[in-house]
């Protein structure tokens, strides 16, 4: 079934400086769903997102978004595709020299010739959706982390994208802001009829809002399933991750010689 999935990733490989980061990723992301990609830090999940957005060119394999192959597109093709994508960066990446209003208006001004009055209405609607219409005249440096992320979310959906990507949307937020962002991700996805991909390592929040989860470790998909399946998974890696256990398939200790050798090795000699 090709037509019900918006994004296909087939046998994706990516090397960084000769070191393999992604080694054969396969996934289908169905239309209209919110999908989480999880894994420990440095497992290559952000790299995967960058490849889907066309910011990194994969070493091998294929990525198809909405019937078009991203991995072979030229720059103008990628730019045409990105107009239908929105992306939320880890810390929002708001333009610090523009007000909240101008930040949200930026994609509209760049890509449309809409009259100023219409741009104003659209921006205010987007800001209303994230609850920050009253903050339109503030500058980004006077916003809290959670507010900045909400403004960035409004900016990401300004052009009503069909695919929204989130790079670590929960990092560094207090529990209330975290819940707010989680709910917004779900609500905006359903209201816009979009598809969302979320890269995160926040298991508990993600299990509440997503439809499907992929676990990545060492550049490969090691487990996948709906939140219910994941919660009851007997897979030791998933179990360790979901229950935040210190030791398990992901070892606590980095590979080393036995500690006795290290401590007393010198005296034996």
């Amino acid at each position: 079934m090709l037509d019900d999935a918006l994004v296909h990733v087939e046998n994706l490989r990516f090397d960084y400086g000769g070191k393999p980061v992604l080694q054969g990723i396969n996934m289908r992301i169905p239309r209209g769903k919110v999908v989480a990609i999880m894994g420990g830090s440095g497992c290559g999940k952000t790299t995967l997102l960058r490849c889907i957005g066309g910011q990194l060119r994969p070493t091998g394999g294929k990525i198809v978004v909405d019937g078009q192959t991203v991995s072979t597109m030229n720059q103008s093709g990628i730019y045409a595709m990105r107009r239908r994508m929105g992306m939320l960066f880890q810390f929002g990446a708001l333009f610090t020299d523009m007000s909240v209003f101008e930040n949200v208006a930026f994609p509209l001004r760049e890509h449309t010739d809409l009259p100023e009055s219409l741009i104003r209405d659209l921006v205010l609607m987007k800001l209303q959706a994230v609850g920050l219409r009253g903050a339109r005249d503030l500058m980004p440096n006077s916003l809290s982390g959670g507010m900045a992320r909400r403004v960035a979310l409004a900016r990401a959906v300004a052009l009503d994208p069909s695919l929204i990507m989130y790079d670590e949307p929960f990092t560094g937020l207090d529990p209330i802001s975290l819940g707010v962002i989680g709910q917004l991700i779900r609500r905006l996805n359903d209201a816009l009829g979009a598809t969302s991909i979320m890269v995160t390592h926040d298991v508990q929040e993600s299990l509440l809002i997503v439809d499907y989860i992929f676990f990545i470790s060492e550049g490969k998909v090691v487990a996948e399933g709906t939140p219910d399946e994941i919660r009851h998974s007997s897979d030791p890696f998933v179990h360790q991750f979901v229950h935040a256990e210190a030791d398990g398939p992901v070892p606590f200790h980095i590979k080393a010689t036995p500690i006795m050798d290290d401590l007393f090795g010198g005296r034996h000699a």
């Binding site: 730019y79 107009r83 992306m87 880890q90 810390f91 960035a152």
Partner: peptide
């Protein structure tokens, strides 16, 4: 602060 990357992702060079 990833503003350039964000701009690039919004299809603005």
């Amino acid at each position: 602060t990833e503003q350039l990357k964000a701009m690039d992702m919004m299809a603005v060079d």
